[in-house]
């Protein structure tokens, strides 16, 4: 992990295990996420990569009968500490979901939502912020004429960029993306990838993906999961060209999964 030297560790996962009811979804995972880098989590379906992602902003809290062991640190502080407020945590660690899930509101209101729930009331502040965020998400030019139309009228790719904009509007420090392009066509996917590349200047990005090429294209660090365990993690170039473990190589070259 030479390339990571000197960079700040934004999030640290230490010996994390996670259980749904009786079954173990994650086993003893330890992994660091660096500021202003894109980390890709890859692996076959059910390998635990999405579970890990959802542990990072405690979305897994929503699942009844689930529990976790181990530690997750954000800027050195444990996010599973009983004193930590989940809501504030999720404001700092935002999330973009697999399927675009805009609210059935206008485009404007979708982006403004996070601001409003954060108590921003001033109309002009909200308007300015919505515009900035939409520009940041490379969507402004496409929607500026119809900000007050329903967001459900946008194309799938536009919807997903809107969801990214919605997540960015609350100025998170970390953005989690759960296969953000898996429901999109290649052109829309390309736009999302360009966006991710652009966003890493300001954010720490952690992305789950099924798509090897995508991981290779967008990420700086790649972590490979299998059956709930972290198999191998390292600089993306190294993982894709000279993986240390046979299992990783087999997965990357498409021999299983």
């Amino acid at each position: 992990m030479d390339a990571d030297k000197g960079r700040a560790k934004k999030m640290v996962v230490k010996n994390l295990s996670f259980f749904y009811g009786g079954s173990k979804a994650l086993t003893d995972v330890s992994l660091d996420f660096y500021a202003n880098q894109v980390t890709a989590l890859i692996g076959p379906s059910g390998c635990g990569k999405s579970t890990l992602l959802r542990c990072l902003n405690r979305m897994n809290d929503l699942i009844p009968y689930s529990r976790s062991e181990g530690q997750v640190l954000l800027d050195g502080e444990s996010i599973y500490d009983p004193k930590v407020d989940v809501v504030s945590l999720r404001r700092r660690v935002g999330m973009v979901f697999q399927k675009p899930n805009p609210f059935p509101k206008t485009i404007f209101e979708n982006v403004a939502y996070g601001l409003r729930v954060n108590g921003v009331k001033d109309r002009s502040t909200i308007e300015q912020k919505v515009e900035d965020t939409l520009k940041n998400a490379a969507l402004w030019e496409e929607v500026k004429e119809r900000l007050y139309d329903s967001a459900l009228g946008l194309s799938g790719g536009q919807q997903q960029r809107l969801c990214i904009a919605r997540a960015l509007a609350v100025e998170p420090e970390v953005v989690l993306m759960d296969e953000p392009a898996s429901a999109l066509d290649p052109i829309a996917t390309q736009k999302i990838e360009e966006l991710i590349h652009h966003l890493k200047k300001c954010y720490t990005i952690i992305i789950v993906t099924h798509n090897m090429q995508q991981a290779a294209r967008v990420s700086d660090v790649t972590a490979f999961f299998y059956l709930g365990k972290l198999i191998e993690a390292g600089v993306t170039d190294t993982i894709f060209t000279r993986p240390k473990l046979k299992q990783t190589e087999e997965y990357i070259t498409g021999r299983f999964g």
Partner: peptide, 13 residues
């Protein structure tokens, strides 16, 4: 962090 913890507490309440 302290301030946000306090606001978090009142929100949780």
């Amino acid at each position: 962090m302290k301030a946000s913890q306090r606001s978090g507490q009142s929100r949780r309440r």
